[in-house]
Computed example of a mutant assay.
Amino acid sequence: MSKTIIDTNFNFPNQKSVYKGKVREVYNIDNNLLVMIATDRLSAFDVVMPKGIPYKGQILNQIATKFMSQTEDLVPNWLIATPDPNVAVGHLCKPFKVEMVIRGYMSGHAAREYKTGKRLLCGVPLPEGMKENDKFPEPIITPATKAEMGDHDEDISRKDILKRGIVSEADYLVLEDYTRKLFQRGTEIAASRGLILVDTKYEFGKTKDGKIVLIDEIHTPDSSRYFYADGYQERQDKNEPQKQLSKEFVRQWLIANNFQGLQGQTVPVMSDEYIDTVSERYIELYENIMGEQFVKADVTNIQERIKTNVETYLAKANF
């Protein structure tokens, strides 16, 4: 059997529907619970790569669920249980149609925009005289929303979110507050492990009783960028690239192979050897971010393992 899971087609008891995102597949159980399966798919520049990355789904799911446990005193979240290494079960929520991106440093998308001469990102003014990977005076929130056509993320300002009625002002103030609190906690946890949390994104939803909760993922290498703290300032002073833990190394490989998700571009072929190195990098990410050894789950038959674990959980769950 394949050692990766890149697609699922389950039919769980009381299943109402299934939503397939770029990486996660979400099963609606009785309009009450959501079963979220983190696949091994790899997405970059809003394009899903043809091959899966061994253990990636397990890594993302375990980082996200463990960080939710470590932040639930600050911000309520959707999570109820993790019956399988690739699976999270939580409350059915209506997602807000914005991603709350928060940046502590001039990196990634922000740096690329800055280099083109832009000094306003999502309505937030950017200081003059910054160079790539410099720290912002204060973290900035630069939201994104899905384009009306397709799944591409678009920058959007707070003003436009409110003007277009995407989120009410009262709710948006809560989203901003939760975003800053989560980023501060994530920054503290990262620092305790010799890392810098550079930027990240959070997604939120509303439960049936109207409570705003954190959903999806938190502080994973797919949603976040980390630098090693040791040597950060020295590398900045020498104008050297930062040593980082994130999916950015995949983006840079794609850029070097003439792919940025633009129309007419072809996804470069990832060799099995390169796939293995990506998997090893994700394991390194896990162990550095979580401060513990990664334990590989049995991948003899991932589909059957997930099916059995989820069905066993649902049979015992009393909702």
Rank of each mutant, 00 (worst) to 15 (best):
T4I: 14
T8P: 00
T8Y: 06
F10D: 01
N11G: 12
S17C: 05
Y19S: 14
K22A: 05
K22H: 06
V26C: 11
Y27I: 04
D30V: 07
D30K: 10
N31E: 15
V35H: 01
M36T: 11
I37L: 14
A38M: 09
D40S: 08
S43Y: 07
F45Q: 06
D46L: 07
D46T: 08
G52R: 03
I53V: 15
P54S: 03
G57A: 08
L60V: 10
L60K: 08
I63W: 03
I63F: 05
A64Y: 05
S69C: 13
Q70V: 06
V75K: 04
V75L: 09
W78V: 11
W78N: 12
L79V: 11
I80L: 15
T82K: 13
A88Y: 13
A88I: 12
V89A: 01
G90A: 10
Y105S: 02
H109T: 14
A110P: 01
A110W: 07
A111H: 03
G123P: 00
L126D: 04
E128H: 11
K131M: 09
N133Y: 08
D134C: 12
P137H: 14
P137I: 14
I141E: 04
A144L: 09
K146R: 13
M149Y: 10
D153N: 02
D153W: 03
E154M: 11
S157R: 08
I161L: 07
K163I: 11
R164K: 15
A170M: 07
D177H: 10
R185G: 01
G186V: 10
T187V: 06
E188T: 11
A191R: 14
S192H: 09
S192P: 00
F204E: 01
K206T: 14
K208C: 05
V213D: 03
L214K: 02
I215H: 01
I215L: 06
T220E: 04
P221Y: 09
S223T: 03
Q233V: 15
E234G: 05
R235Q: 11
P241D: 04
Q244P: 02
K247D: 01
V250H: 01
Q252I: 11
W253A: 00
W253D: 00
L254H: 01
I255S: 06
N257E: 10
N258M: 07
Q260I: 15
L262F: 12
G264W: 09
M270P: 00
V278W: 00
V278P: 00
L285S: 13
I289W: 06
I289V: 10
M290G: 02
Q293A: 12
F294M: 06
F294L: 05
D298T: 03
E304R: 14
R305E: 13
N309E: 12
N309K: 09
F319L: 14
